[in-house]
């Protein structure tokens, strides 16, 4: 009896969820449609203001509530003590820069910011170009893309089965990398302990995931290059490499910068991979990981917030680069 009732209520729940879902989407769509229909009927004067309200205001509101306000709160907390009760001046920042491991952490963050985006974008571009004229690129692209669909927990286990090292010489290797090293006659080593190799091994995991992102975006950009341009350069006798470097890359330059920037930000924020693979030990930690440790392990919001602000400063050079770039693009247009 109870079981049947439970099943019925589960069914009811499912139905109500589905109706709720459909209604939400319908209401949202209707709101947008009504806003447009009404706006199009208004005069030019009203539209001059209305266009900001409809197009820009929702995004700004969400961004303000979700990110800007919390960012200011973080800034404020970075000058407070562990529980945010008392002001401590610059103490948290002083602490951050006098940590004994801080040099390792800064160095690693720098390596991540440079190597990870270049490698991901490079591989993504390579695959996008290689598959561009392929008859059936679907399977190849899907395989490259697949890591993006795997959660971090899944990725952690996958790479555990690659980097695992068996200290007992008599026991068989479980890690693929160790086994491959053995097949080629090398003595496997405890990969994740070797510094600075281990940071690069962690970056490999990140690149493995992010290449799919770069590939999809760059591939769409390459497809937007008109056939005629490529074909004309072809008829002019340009070699494959020349065509790539003189036509394809300049044509999608904007998109490449976008992809590089996005992945750089991703690399700056990375901590899941580090937590699952090394826990930040063996000199592999980065700022984002330290921030997480301070805020959620040590429960010190002060130092955690200070690290978050330092992380935020790391993105400023990237912003500056994009500003310069956008100016240039606008002047070219």
């Amino acid at each position: 009896m109870i079981e049947i009732a439970a099943r019925q209520s589960q069914l009811e729940q499912a139905v109500s969820k589905l109706t709720g879902l459909t209604l939400t989407i319908l209401i949202f769509g209707a709101l947008v449609a009504i806003a447009f229909a009404l706006s199009e009927r208004t005069g030019e004067r009203v539209q001059r203001i209305l266009k900001y309200v409809i197009f820009l205001a929702p995004a700004l509101l969400f961004l303000f509530i979700g990110l800007v306000a919390p960012a200011f709160r973080t800034l404020y907390l970075s000058f407070r003590d562990a529980r945010g009760n008392e002001s401590v001046g610059w103490e948290n920042y002083q602490w951050a820069f006098t940590q004994p491991e801080i040099l390792d952490v800064l160095r690693n963050t720098g390596v991540w910011m440079i190597v990870a985006p270049i490698a991901s974008t490079g591989f993504g571009l390579l695959i996008a170009v290689l598959t561009d004229r392929m008859r059936r690129p679907g399977l190849v692209k899907s395989l490259i893309f697949m890591p993006m669909a795997i959660s971090f927990v899944g990725a952690g286990i996958i790479w555990k089965f690659v980097y695992q090292f068996e200290p007992n010489e008599r026991a068989p290797e479980i890690g693929l990398l160790s086994q491959v090293a053995e097949w080629f006659g090398f003595v496997p080593t405890n990969w994740l302990l070797v510094n600075p190799l281990n940071t690069f091994l962690l970056i490999v995991v990140f690149v493995w995931i992010q290449t799919g992102f770069a590939m999809v975006v760059l591939s769409a950009a390459i497809k937007a290059i008109p056939d005629e341009i490529l074909e004309a350069s072809m008829l002019d006798g340009a070699s494959g490499w020349k065509r790539f470097s003189r036509v394809t890359v300049p044509m999608i330059r904007g998109t490449i910068i976008v992809v590089l920037s996005t992945i750089t930000i991703g690399a700056l924020k990375v901590f899941d991979i580090i937590r699952t693979m090394t826990g930040g030990n063996f000199k592999t930690s980065v700022i984002a990981n330290e921030m997480y440790n301070q805020s959620f392990r040590a429960l010190n919001y002060g130092t955690g917030s200070a690290l978050a602000i330092i992380l935020f400063l790391g993105v400023l050079p990237l912003v500056a680069y994009n500003v310069v770039n956008l100016r240039r693009e606008r002047s070219e247009r």
Partner: peptide, 24 residues
Amino acid sequence: LSSPWASFTAIVLATIWTIPTFGL
């Protein structure tokens, strides 16, 4: 433009990419 070498390289890369997942 649809060079067989390009396709071959793409397939090799895709295979390498998939080995860890295949292991899983």
